[in-house]
């Protein structure tokens, strides 16, 4: 599903921020991506959601070498990857409903299906009464649930979350992880970048640990997958 081989990455002409990263995630895997701030977690996620290209090495997604993909082939691949961004990145001029509907709209799905699916999903994440609310009027936890709903609405095969618990209290963080776990059980490959040790300890999933741009795989005691 996701394969990195000796991947290096740098921003422009700057120093390399990831060095020789190699790992292989099968479909349905769940991993925590851990590491100190600045260790390269966000950079690694950016490579996974095709925001950046590696400066060296091989990245394969869905059995396809991304270096061979043309620009026109990227949108189709990105639609199979759901991302929960660190700062949510909701569009403030759109309602919660329209934010969640966005991935379906860009994919050209029909309006009837969009209304049905988005309505159901917002109800599932407990935002039935906030469909028309703008992000500015929502709490941190509500915004996060909108961001998650947007990430999963198109049923992506890969779900990436960048510090999704960073802006919410522990109770909401737990609810989020249960939600991601539920999506993982439905077949999505999930990678959650976090430095919340309490959460990592509570959910027994293997870790991909980054230190100074170098990856160390750390199977958790009692790892589920």
């Amino acid at each position: 599903m996701i394969r990195f081989e000796n991947v290096g990455m740098r921003y422009g002409a700057g120093p390399e921020v990831l060095h020789d990263v190699s790992f292989d995630l099968p479909q349905g895997a769940f991993r925590f991506l851990t590491g100190e701030s600045g260790a390269g977690k966000s950079s690694l996620l950016k490579l996974m959601y095709l925001f950046h290209r590696p400066s060296r090495g091989l990245i394969s997604l869905f059995e396809r070498d991304i270096s061979t993909l043309s620009r026109d082939e990227l949108p189709e691949l990105r639609r199979q990857i759901g991302v929960v961004f660190q700062e949510f990145r909701l569009l403030n001029h759109l309602s919660a409903f329209e934010n969640v509907a966005l991935p379906l709209r860009v994919a050209g799905r029909n309006e009837g299906l969009i209304r049905k699916n988005v309505g159901e999903l917002l109800e599932w994440v407990g935002l039935k009464d906030h469909m028309t609310a703008r992000p500015a009027t929502l709490s941190g936890g509500q915004k996060q649930r909108v961001a998650i709903a947007r990430a999963v609405i198109a049923r992506p095969s890969i779900l990436l979350a960048d510090e999704p618990t960073g802006n919410v209290d522990d109770r909401i963080a737990m609810r989020l992880l249960y939600l991601l776990e539920a999506l993982n059980r439905q077949g999505a490959t999930v990678v959650v970048a976090t430095h919340n040790q309490a959460l990592i300890d509570r959910f027994a999933y293997p870790r991909l640990h980054l230190q100074d741009g170098v990856l160390h795989a750390q199977p958790h005691d009692g790892a589920r997958r």
Binding site: Y49, L50, F51, R71, D72, P75, E76, R78, R79, V83, R89, L91, L102, P103, V106, A107, R150, A154
Partner: peptide, 16 residues
């Protein structure tokens, strides 16, 4: 710019 970047990341084509 930021909206366009986000649209790209959720799979919008240049044509969209």
């Amino acid at each position: 710019h930021e909206t366009i970047e986000l649209l790209h990341l959720i799979g919008a084509s240049d044509g969209f």
